[in-house]
């Protein structure tokens, strides 16, 4: 039952409800997603299977543990969006191609559309929403805004998370390295030119022609 340790040792569920919009919403949404059978508990390491009925899971999203009930087939992306109301990660291709669903798992970028929510338990999930705290905007989204590196903006949180991950891992990254970190993301409005401006600004490098 170690999956629940974090929850039990952390603040009470009631504190969550007061602290985080995510949990409040999650509760509301879980109500909508009425499960037809009682949720089974997840028991890793044994030969016993989990599901196919919904199971209770705990995810650590942007530093907070949140709980919901999902079937094993639910992806991390859908768990975040449909069950926890964390919608900064977008569902676009849903096939590990476009990058709109990019989140960090333990600091590394992944396509949330192609990770099972069950498998994201016990890991630190970070979405673009984490880059705005107490009225303070992180340098990466701030650079996007200054350079106008977004139009419709639907791909933007994915790009922002991908870029943030590169700079977190290597604050001295050169523009070319940052750009390589965006290899797995696609923008349809065509904001790459402005994105390069944002990259050069973040790397304190002057952009030549």
């Amino acid at each position: 039952m170690h999956d629940h340790e974090t929850l039990e040792s952390g603040p009470s569920r009631r504190d969550f409800l007061q602290e985080t919009g995510a949990v409040v919403a999650a509760t509301a949404l879980a109500g909508a997603a009425t499960m037809e059978s009682p949720a089974a508990e997840l028991q890793p390491g044994t030969g016993g299977g989990i599901g196919p009925n919904a199971v209770k899971i705990t995810l650590n999203v942007n530093g907070r543990d949140v709980q919901t009930s999902i079937e094993p087939r639910v992806t991390l992306l859908d768990a975040l969006r449909n069950y926890l109301d964390v919608t900064g990660c977008k569902r676009v291709c849903d096939r590990a191609t476009c990058g709109a669903c990019t989140v960090m798992l333990d600091g590394k970028v992944v396509y949330a559309c192609t990770v099972l929510a069950i498998e994201a338990q016990g890991r630190q999930i970070r979405t673009a929403e984490s880059l705005y705290n107490d009225g303070k905007l992180d340098a990466v989204p701030a650079a996007f805004v200054r350079a106008d590196a977004q139009q419709c903006g639907f791909c933007t949180p994915g790009f922002v998370v991908a870029m943030k991950a590169v700079l977190d891992a290597n604050p001295q990254a050169a523009p070319a390295q940052v750009e390589k970190g965006l290899q797995g993301n696609i923008c349809r409005c065509g904001t790459y030119e402005q994105m390069r401006d944002a990259i050069y600004a973040l790397c304190n490098t002057k952009r030549g022609n």
Binding site: A25, A28, L29, A32, R81, N82, D85, T87, G88, C89, K90, R91, T127, A128, E129, L131, Y132, L137, D138, P141, A142, F144, V145, Q150, G153, F154, T156, P157, V160
Partner: peptide, 15 residues
């Protein structure tokens, strides 16, 4: 700011 940090609610995001 809202768009770049995923806080902007698009129609797809409405729950």
């Amino acid at each position: 700011n809202e768009k770049a940090t995923g806080r902007a609610k698009y129609s797809f995001d409405i729950n």
